[in-house]
Design a protein around this nucleic acid. Sequence first.
DNA 1: TTAAAGTACTTTGAAAAACAAAGTTATAAG
DNA 2: CTTATAACTTTGTTTTTCAAAGTACTTTAA
Lengths: 100, 100
Amino acid sequence: MKKIIVQLNKTFDNRVRLGIMSMLMVNDWVDFTTLRDLLELSDGRLASHIKALEEEQFIEVRKQFVGRKPNTSYRATKAGKKAFTDHLDALERMIKGVKE
Amino acid sequence: MKKIIVQLNKTFDNRVRLGIMSMLMVNDWVDFTTLRDLLELSDGRLASHIKALEEEQFIEVRKQFVGRKPNTSYRATKAGKKAFTDHLDALERMIKGVKE
DNA sequence: TTAAAGTACTTTGAAAAACAAAGTTATAAG
DNA sequence: CTTATAACTTTGTTTTTCAAAGTACTTTAA
């Protein structure tokens, strides 16, 4: 039972980021406003956490026009999904396995 | 599917605190040094997170002497266990349930 | 046609949280 | 007498988080 904490990903030490990733694990291409409204965040707060996840390359962006309106959507990258499931696995192991 | 993020407890937005709580969910009375060594933390870092959890009344302390040496142990309170399982449940619901 | 509202941010600044490093008190072992 | 262990606390810095306001462009409403 070594290196318990290190296996948890620091990027996911945040409720908002957990929320974004959860959404993007199940849904392909979720747009900015949907994310903002579902997670009940301000534009700025959402944008800042999205930026953090983008910098880690855990999510990717698609910008397009729907009709005449700009539309920005996000989805989890392969690396992002892996990092997230790894994190959750580590958490589960930690909760279940910490005896001694 | 409302109030997704709010159900996650801010106190557990931290790897160290998740580690401490995980330990104390399964083990009754874990002492300071054991916690410190297993989680591979410095005295100061461990102490500060313990303090935060104590202030929330999620853990309680017992100070005694073992032989001639001081020994400080911690365990999760009822409220602490509830808060932690509530948090984990919310997380699970969020991961599994965020469709739409 | 002027005003208001929506989309998707960025910037700024402040507050909160986290952390490392060193200091502390007290006992105990070598 | 020196070093070590236990369990912290203090100090100061760095990092993180967030709210609030600003921006640029478009569209819808009055």
